[in-house]
Computed example of a mutant assay.
Amino acid sequence: MKVRTRRGAVGIGTLIVFIAMVLVAAVAAAVLINTSGFLQQKASSTGRETTQQVASGIQVERVVGKANGLPTTQYIQQLAIYVTPNAGSSGIDLSNTKIILKNESTEAILKYDPTHAAFTSTVVSDIFNVSLAAWASLAGNTTREFGIIVLQDADGSLTSEHPTLNKGDLAVLTLLVGDLGSDNGVFGAGIGPGEKISGEVVPEFGAPGVIEFVTPSTYTESVMDLQ
């Protein structure tokens, strides 16, 4: 029986082609691995930022105003905004938070500055007491700022250089919106009767707290719930 044998053509050309194919496959694999690793890290970072942005935010619990000198003066001069973090929110640094407030003719942007707008962390019987640091430090300032009164802060995060609003914390942001004798307020003399006010408490990240109310048609009480 005759056995036929076939010999493959093996030479230097075939070897070069084989090595070239191996090199191309290695380069392609390296590119794919690097690209997938970069995309994975980018997606993870974007996911964390998106979760933080969506889950975090500040909530305006209520807004209270005070008109001083009734019945002669029909203007609200002091505004107290009660804020707390949204459920599941990360810590909110109030030193990087802005308050936007506007009426029909004026829009003001207020910031927190610890050198001027100090906070009050003791229990207070009168939230609008102008001798409190959160109010007294605002009087006479040419820049628009807000103060902080700490009402609830178990971990002391609100009494640091960067006051941070954490889960369970409750604070009052104090604004001088009218003239108390030593400061021309955000809205000049103040907020008059039947005036519409809108705005936001805007944190560094996350959803802002909404401010929107219309003042009573006449002021019969000094302290009034507005929102």
Rank of each mutant, 00 (worst) to 15 (best):
Y82W: 13
T115P: 01
D183P: 00
G168E: 09
V210I: 15
L132E: 03
S131T: 12
T215M: 09
V177L: 09
I16D: 06
V214Q: 13
S95N: 15
S56D: 02
L94M: 14
T97Q: 01
A55V: 14
N103D: 15
A134H: 00
S36A: 12
T72E: 09
R7A: 09
L138F: 06
A29G: 10
A43S: 11
S36G: 02
E107H: 00
F38Q: 09
E49P: 00
A26Y: 12
T73M: 06
T164H: 04
P203K: 01
V214P: 10
D225N: 14
A136S: 12
V130S: 03
F146Q: 06
V223F: 07
T220S: 15
P71Q: 12
A139V: 04
I211P: 11
E107N: 02
G11F: 08
E204Y: 14
V223E: 11
S90N: 12
E195C: 05
T220D: 14
Y82K: 08
D93G: 04
I12T: 12
G88M: 07
E221L: 13
T51D: 12
T46Q: 11
N141I: 10
N184S: 09
E204D: 12
V201M: 11
T174L: 00
T5Q: 11
N141E: 15
Q77R: 02
V64N: 01
L70G: 04
F128H: 04
Y82H: 13
L110R: 04
G11Y: 07
L180C: 03
A154N: 11
V31E: 15
Q40W: 15
G91S: 12
L170W: 01
A117Q: 00
F213S: 13
S105K: 14
G37P: 02
L176S: 10
V150F: 01
L132N: 03
S182K: 05
G147K: 01
S121L: 00
N141H: 11
T97P: 03
Q52A: 13
V27A: 14
E61K: 11
S182P: 03
I99Q: 04
L110A: 08
L138G: 02
G147W: 03
G147F: 01
A117G: 03
L79N: 05
A67W: 05
D225G: 03
R7Y: 07
T73N: 10
S198M: 15
I16G: 04
V54N: 04
E221I: 13
